[in-house]
């Protein structure tokens, strides 16, 4: 039932994007996200599209695989798009029954949908090409200065990486528990909020019990492998900038500048 979720999962391949330093990719994601909201005309979006598609091409991740991640939110996109289209005041373009489509509404709907899609593809590009460990390494180093303010950066990063590792396991487990309870006549499709919440109990209790058990097992396994916090730890894959990374930084800045210029010009 849940096997097809691709958001947040790593896609192993050997590509330029996979090799880039995670800090570069974090930097790209940040500027790309700002870029999406800065862009408000067709020219700026064309540049974003070119940038995004060249990145996708470079990542060697099949485009179809990436688009699958979008399936989960299609409904959300349609609803949000419809609201924008019908409920924004402006010059009426067409009337469908009681609803009117306005020019501003159409533009907003298009812009919003495009932004959402670009946002999801862009951010999933980062998780698809970066292993959770590298990603957290990148975060840990980028947020390093916060350590001085007593923020437990290493612990947060490790927690994130473990969470990412266990998502598929817990998703599969949820599927199994649902089947086991359905075999006892449980109905997860009941209507009504209270009944629905009640129907979730037989699912959530075993799931939590199992998650706690896994957490305690994992803690013990980590201890057995001499884990004792971030102090004195070395890294198997320390982060070093290569020439590619420096070039990438430069390209990202140019790209962002391009988007800003296009917004101002048009």
């Amino acid at each position: 039932m849940f096997r097809e979720i691709t958001i947040g999962q790593y896609y192993p391949a050997d590509s330029l994007l996979h090799r880039l330093d995670p800090r570069v990719k974090l930097f790209f994601t940040l500027f790309y996200m700002i870029g999406i909201f800065v862009a408000d005309n067709i020219f700026a979006f064309s540049l974003l599209t070119v940038g995004l598609f060249s990145a996708v091409k470079l990542s060697k991740v099949p485009f179809g695989y990436m688009v699958k991640g979008l399936q989960a939110i299609i409904l959300l996109l349609i609803i949000a798009g419809a609201f924008n289209m019908f409920l924004t005041p402006g010059q009426t373009l067409a009337t469908v029954g009681p609803l009117t489509i306005t020019d501003v509404g159409l533009k907003n709907a298009g812009l919003m949908t495009a932004r959402m899609i670009y946002l999801i593809i862009g951010t999933s590009l980062m998780t698809l090409t970066t292993t959770p460990n590298r990603l957290t390494d990148g975060l840990e180093t980028s947020l390093g200065p916060l350590q001085k303010l007593n923020v437990p950066v290493h612990e947060i990063a490790l927690m994130m990486s473990i969470a990412l590792r266990f998502i598929p396991i817990l998703v599969e487990e949820t599927d199994k528990i649902m089947k086991a309870q359905m075999a006892r006549g449980a109905d997860f499709e009941t209507k009504g909020l209270v009944r629905k919440a009640k129907a979730m109990v037989p699912l959530l209790v075993p799931l939590f019990v199992s998650a706690f058990r896994r957490a305690s097992d994992l803690a013990m396994a980590m201890e057995a492998r001499c884990y004792h916090g971030g102090e004195g730890r070395t890294k198997m894959k320390p982060l070093h900038y290569s020439k590619e990374d420096r070039v990438a930084y430069l390209l990202i800045l140019l790209f962002f500048a391009g988007v800003v210029v296009l917004r101002i010009l048009f």
């Binding site: 199994k176 086991a180 309870q181 075999a183 006892r184 006549g185 109990v201 209790v205 019990v209």
Partner: peptide, 17 residues
């Protein structure tokens, strides 16, 4: 049908709640 064809899955932990 599910009450007539009963099924016990591998891990009891998945159904006890």
């Amino acid at each position: 049908l599910r009450t007539r064809v009963g099924m016990v899955f591998q891990y009891p932990e998945h159904q006890l709640f």
